[in-house]
Design a protein around this nucleic acid. Structure first.
Lengths: 245, 245
DNA sequence: CCACCTGACATTGTCGACAATCGACGATCA
DNA sequence: TGATCGTCGATTGTCGACAATGTCAGGTGG
């Protein structure tokens, strides 16, 4: 049994950087996810396997597996024997994203807070400056990504892998939404000073103030979101069919 | 384009119950997940595609897609071109599960609490009685499932789909752990009175008390878990290779 | 004009075979 | 003896063809 229960082999090449050969599937997942999150393939658009397999120049096998993964990430929905589409977010979905995100981000801060981690704080400042630079450059799409990277730092610093995993799920859905927002409204990235009080609280000593700041930040995001989605009744309240097991 | 953007078709059979034909993939996912969660295939055991496809009498195509889904659920890990195994939980993993679960379950209660939902409370009592009945019957394996169903009620009642999704992810990993626990230690299901104070708090009016009760419940679970896992150093601290994208 | 039936077609689901890669064992040489 | 290299088998990755299913358009009868 070559794929033995416990490997006894000497790890001869361990000092070398392990560069596992990339699989087509992994490549497709990245490219397809990017295309969806960038808005190249908008929410609700059909994802026909044969068309995609031709577009990415692979057979349907790896492509289907890539789709499975994106389904699990919530970026794609499918109905057996019928079709696959880019997921659409309803108002309720976005409300859920922000409410859950409030809880998770508060928890993440709770993990980082007692450590008084200076490297974390420095990096937080650095990312905020990077965000401001991107906003000043006028690149809305990049601003959204930089904004999410800013918030992502807290989850990274928490060292909580399951929490990071949950954040990634939320982040993907948020990108999906912001991409649609951007396409519909044009320039509407985050504001230049939107994190000033957030940062201030993060450097303070009052954890309750930090909690309030997170909640407020989320509330603002949710309000913007709802205002946008209510102008598009086609995206709200639709009971989307989720058929994967 | 038959798979049109917006269907204009009259929904002729809408009054009939839609029973979409089950796919093999969905069937395999269920069976394989059950086999893993029940402990029939223990953590760390190799999942060879050809062997499984023969066992379940399907080709490797649907089987691989099923595996992808279980990978995304965190029940299975894989290394490209090398092999697939049932996931193993380290002490750190279990700590993360319980800490995150504390946060999520508190949040879930926060959603249900203001509603003073009598149906919810009645169902909570009912499930607790079901749990006690299962414990009295001496069926440890069923007790674990019933215990998880008891806690699952809060997530269901919250009406928060994203939260329920997160709970399912945690629940799967918990089942994975408890199955291993059961296999190693035998009879060790939940105690008969383990939810008495939990229920009491849920019927009270003091939300802080409820929060404390949840935290305490999780703390007890985590302690039991750690005690068990520390007797099995083979399961702890191992940096498991997670290779999916 | 509306409800229903029927057939064709688009799309996804499944299969079997072949290719690529990895890990283990044994041969070889210092 | 010990390390290095080549070879081989096991396993996963990929492909193309065929089958199953759902949807839509048109026709038919009331």
């Amino acid at each position: 049994m070559p794929f033995s229960e416990v490997s006894t082999r000497r790890n001869v090449g361990a000092h070398l950087e392990r560069v596992p050969k990339a699989t087509l599937r992994a490549h497709i997942v990245e490219r397809l996810r990017l295309a969806i999150l960038a808005g190249d393939i908008p929410p609700g658009a059909p994802l026909v396997e044969t068309a995609l397999s031709e577009r990415f120049d692979v057979s349907r096998g790896p492509l289907r597996e890539a789709l499975r993964q994106l389904i699990e990430e919530g970026l794609v929905v499918t109905v057996p024997y019928t079709g696959t589409r880019v997921a659409e977010l309803s108002v309720e979905d976005v409300q859920e994203i922000y409410s859950l995100r409030t809880v998770l981000e508060t928890f993440a801060f709770e993990q980082v807070w007692p450590r008084r981690d200076d490297r974390f704080r420095a990096e937080l400042r650095r990312r905020n400056e990077a965000l401001i630079a991107t906003i000043d450059a006028g690149d809305d799409r990049a601003s959204i990504l930089t904004e999410l990277e800013f918030h992502g730092l807290v989850y990274e610093a928490s060292g909580h892998r399951l929490l990071q995993r949950a954040w990634h799920g939320l982040r993907g859905r948020l990108q999906l939404y912001w991409a649609a927002h951007h396409r519909a409204h044009g320039r509407r990235g985050p504001k230049r000073d939107s994190h000033d009080s957030y940062i201030k609280a993060a450097f303070g000593t009052d954890f309750e103030a930090m909690k309030a700041e997170i909640a407020d930040h989320m509330r603002r995001g949710m309000e913007t979101t709802e205002k946008f989605l209510r102008t598009r009744p086609d995206l709200s309240g639709k009971p989307k069919r989720r058929a994967n097991s």
